[in-house]
Each structure stands twice: as structure tokens, then as C-alpha cells.
Design a protein around this nucleic acid. Sequence first.
DNA 1: TTGAAAGCGTTACCAA
DNA 2: TTGGTAACGCTTTCAA
Lengths: 344, 344
Amino acid sequence: MNIGEIASRAGVSRATVSRVINDVATVDPKLVRRVKAVINEVGYRPNFQAQALARGRTHTVGLIVSEISGGNPFFAEIILHFERAALENGYEVLISFADTETNPDHVVTCVNRMRERQVEGIAVLTFGMEEALAKKYQTMGFPMVFAGALFGTRALNIRINYLSGLREAVKHLAEFGHTRIGYLSGRLFWSSMRTRYEALRKAMKLAGVVFDKDLVAECDHTLEGGAQGMARLLSLPKPPTAVLCCNDMAAIGAIKTLRARNLEAGRDISLVGFDDLPLAAYTQPPLTTIRFAPSELAKMAFEVLLDAIQGKSRKTNREYKTQFILRESTGAPRVKLRKTSPRQ
Amino acid sequence: MNIGEIASRAGVSRATVSRVINDVATVDPKLVRRVKAVINEVGYRPNFQAQALARGRTHTVGLIVSEISGGNPFFAEIILHFERAALENGYEVLISFADTETNPDHVVTCVNRMRERQVEGIAVLTFGMEEALAKKYQTMGFPMVFAGALFGTRALNIRINYLSGLREAVKHLAEFGHTRIGYLSGRLFWSSMRTRYEALRKAMKLAGVVFDKDLVAECDHTLEGGAQGMARLLSLPKPPTAVLCCNDMAAIGAIKTLRARNLEAGRDISLVGFDDLPLAAYTQPPLTTIRFAPSELAKMAFEVLLDAIQGKSRKTNREYKTQFILRESTGAPRVKLRKTSPRQ
DNA sequence: TTGAAAGCGTTACCAA
DNA sequence: TTGGTAACGCTTTCAA
């Protein structure tokens, strides 16, 4: 069933059917009705490929995210909200999962696949493996937006202000009297993990807390990674009295390790997550964390991308600001630990 | 940059370039090299829309899932694994999030959008709002696969054996001596929730446990829904000593309510989840649950769809079997509760 | 083995 | 206001 078929059944030309489909105002209302009747009757829907070819536009954008590992709902939210923002603006979304971990070049393959499909722009929300891509594309005038990428100049990049949330978190811990503050970091080959790490060091400096490299454990940013990382921190001769985590999933993993040793977050050791997943309010104890909302980020990414596609680089460089969320997994250091730490 | 441009730069016809692109064996190796050199040099990639139009095939399938609410990672896993299976077979995936809750017809819109894009088949993994669709499409010969849908005859449908897992779960609870077994059900306008409910009743019957409607709370299958539902069950004059939940997220919500009243799952009341999210092993206590793996289901769905597209209805009707997973959120009923319950 | 040319389904220009 | 027709970028027959 194609436009020609509709045309002959309605007794008009293909051009007229096309006009009806595209709501061109100049068509005789009678013809409009006749054509629409036929269209409904036979259930005709225009062929997208043909339209795209003829129009030279696809009204499609690409979204590349990391493979979701360990059931982290963060990327699911990104996808949902990006797609929703796109739909509201008449765009469709092509999604790719980049295997950023085992194959950094995979993201290039994803971009190529998308460009074959003539997407009008791509959002790369992989948080950490996009440098190569950025270098390749920032000069060639194809609309592409990154988030939290570590390169400066021309590429569209939503800056992520990790510091804002971390600063408050560290201040909060310092006010409780914590001096041995540890960090469960994600793998530092992810650039976003390097950025977080640097932001934390800066936050510590600003709060006047001594930063101790030995209190940092690098682990996967997953449930299991967090559990393992926390085990390493606890086996230190002098474990930290407070631990920040690179994300909530790792924090949940850490909680499990604590429990296995009869320690409770908030009472025996302070724990701060990152992301503020819906889940964070449901852990035991509810997780003090730093909000990094995928929904807002996704919306922002689409808006920036849309502006780029439409040539209005209005506020092309935007920033997402993280925010401290106080719940119950933080508190004063335990006396026992407090005593030992000044001896250092 | 198009095929004509490549052709003239390489000094061959467009037909030859096309053959090179598509690895046709009959092309002179010298020409192949020449053409490929040009292609690499200018970074040419064929236009998908044009290819699809000329070939009459898109090698694209659609996947419709429910809007992910409350950060449930279940659907994220489905998307990831479906996409992976598709890619391995040379297919691309178009994804839609159906707003099944507030607008049951939205899924029809999704299907239409996908068919405009000439997808070769669609998997509808919404678990509960697809009856209308199924009726409409099961006769028209378009490859479409459902999962756990409640209609019998012609539509491709992956049956979900909820009973297998539930039966073991109920047996497990009965062996502990539970007689007052409650259920935190999802909203029963989701057909998958009705199916689960029916399966549970059957499982209870088979285990010889009296089913008591008053011990069922209908709630959203979310963290918050589970928390609220559990509160309702606990406020009953005689609360259940064990509660099954429609999914893990609801179970995690339920745990929070328990804790707020100083009750602990496994010790004071037995709790069984559903899905076996990675998270389930990280709750406190680790959640006894029923495995319903999105990855396997997604793979199955794609395979069935592919068979349908290729016309081989090999094993067109497949079944996914749920499985009981024992962890630590279940145990013997507390003596206090045990005493009261026979008095009924 | 190669090239010319006719499609694929649609849009959009130009005449009428 | 309508219709004829040339694109859009590619594939695929048919001849050579």
C-alpha cells in the first residue's frame, strides 16, 4: 500500500495525497475528506524511509549510553527521559549501548551505525569513554553532545558540577568531626570517575580535611564492586570513619559488607552515595547521597542537541549541578575510631 | 557524499560501487581496492534510508516496553539484551516506551510509528496492557510477539510459567508451617498481575494452604507501592506470617515498612520477592525470591520474532519458567503469630 | 566483469 | 487548487 494506490482509489494525484498527509493548507476540503477516508479505510501509513529520502531529513537523533551493568537503573532513566523529550519535539531516538568497558572503540561503531541512518545529531552519555570520539567529531560540524567529558574547547559538553554536591557532603562529614574520610572510586579509566575523584580532592581541600590516598579503593561501580571495595577499606590498619562512594549501587554493595561484619552505616561508619536513585531512600539506613538526576541530565542533553541541530547555539554550554541529599547513613565518628585517628 | 560521488572519484559506475559495498564476489579485485580506498578516504557510509527503500527491507525490529517507573532496572535489562540479540543477528532495534498505565491505547500509537518505519516485526514486552493490540494484529500476518499475554490462539506469545516458581515458594513456606500467607499484588488491571495472582492461588491450592483474600493487598509494583501495601497488611487484625510480593521492588518497599515497625524479614515475617534483580542479593536480609530473568526473556522474544520474520515457525510457542531462589528473608513463623493463627 | 537504467515511495517544484 | 515530474540515494536487473 503506497501513495499511488491511495491516489488512484481517491481519484486524485499522488501529489495531492502527499499534501493531505502533510497537512498542506491549500487543498480543497472536499478532497481532504475523500483522501483521508481512503487512508483510514485501508490503514495506510507513509513509508518513513521514502519520506526521509525525499525530504532529506529524518527527524531522528541518536543516544549512546553505556551498557547497563549489574542492573543499575541510572541508564534506564536516561533513556526514558531522553526519548520522552525527543518525542515531545517530534524526534525519534535511535539507541545504542556502547561496550565502553572492554572495547573503547565500540562507541565509534555505534556512531557510524547511527550516521548511516542519517540521525541529525547524537548525544553521547557514556560518562567516560568518549575522548577519542570527541576529538574526531568536534571539528566536523556534526551535532554531537557529551556530558561531563574531559575536553575543553569546541565539542558541545554539558559540564557536570560534581563539586557542588561533594563539597556539601564533605563539609557535612567534617562538621561531624570526621578526619579520616575514604573514597570508593570507580575505575579511573572512566573519565567521569577521574573527574569525580578530582572534585572530591578539591572538596576535601576546601573543607580543610587532609586527603589520604590510602583511604581510596578503586573498584567497579556496581553492587559487587562496592562490596569488595569496602572490604578492602575495612581491612586497612586504620580504616576510614566515613566513606564516600562513586555511586549508589556501590554504596549498597558497601552496606552489605558492613553488615557482614556487624557494622552499621550511620552508626559505626558514615556512608555517602552518589546518584540518588529512588532506591537510596529504601536502603537500611536510608542513604545520604549526592543527587545526580538522570532525568534532568537527559532532558538537558536533548535540549542542547536540538539547539545544535537547529543552529541556535543559544546556551550551548550548560552545567548540571549535583546536590547533597541528607538521609541517615551519616553521623558522628564512633568514639573508638575517633581516638585512634589523631595519633597518626 | 553519495554513491555517485564515490563512483566518479574511483572512475567506475555507481553499480560497481554498490557491488563493492555489498561484497559482491564478481567484482575485479583491483576495482574493489580502488573503490574501498576512495570510500575510506572520504569516510563515506551508505544512506540507510535509500538502501532500505531500494531493497525493500529494513533489517529493523521494534521493541515496546512499559515506561520504567520508580527506577526498576527490569526493563533496562530487557532492552539491553534484546538489542544485543538483535545486533548479533544483523538487526537494529527501535524502542518505544508505552505509557500503559494512563493510556492503554498508547501502545497502538507506538506500533503505528514503528510500522511507518517499516520494522519487520515487533516484540511487545509490556506485561499487561496488550490485549487490544493482540486482537487487532493476530490475524493480519505481521510478525509480532508478546510475553505472558492472556489470549490464546494465533498471536505469538511466550508463555510465562509463573506457577513453577510460586509453587516451590509456597511449598517452602508451608513446610515452615506458615498458614497465613499474604500477597502484595500489583494492580490487577495489568494482565500479568492477574496471571500472577491466579498462579499464586493455584500454588496455594496445590500446597494445601487455605487462600485468604483478606491477606491480599493490591498496590503499585514499586518501592513506594510495596511499602504502602505492607503497611496495610500489617494493620490487619491478624496479619499474615508470610508475604509474597509481585516483584522485588515492592518487596524492598515492604522491607522498609517492616523496619519502621521494628520487624525483620525472615525473623518476624517471611517475605518472598519476584524477579530476582541483582539487587535482591543485597537487601537486608538477602531476599528469597522467584527468578524471572529479563535477559533470558528478551533473548527468547527476539528468537521467536526472528523465526516469525523468516517464516520458520519452528518452536513458535515457547515458555519461560520461573524459578524459586532461596535466600534469607524467609523462615519459620514467629511463635506468637503461630499461636494466634489457628484460632481463626 | 561492468555499466545503463529502471525502480523503491515520497516530496516539492513548476505549470496549468 | 491541482497534477506531472524530477529528484532523493541506493539496488538490481538486463545487456553488453
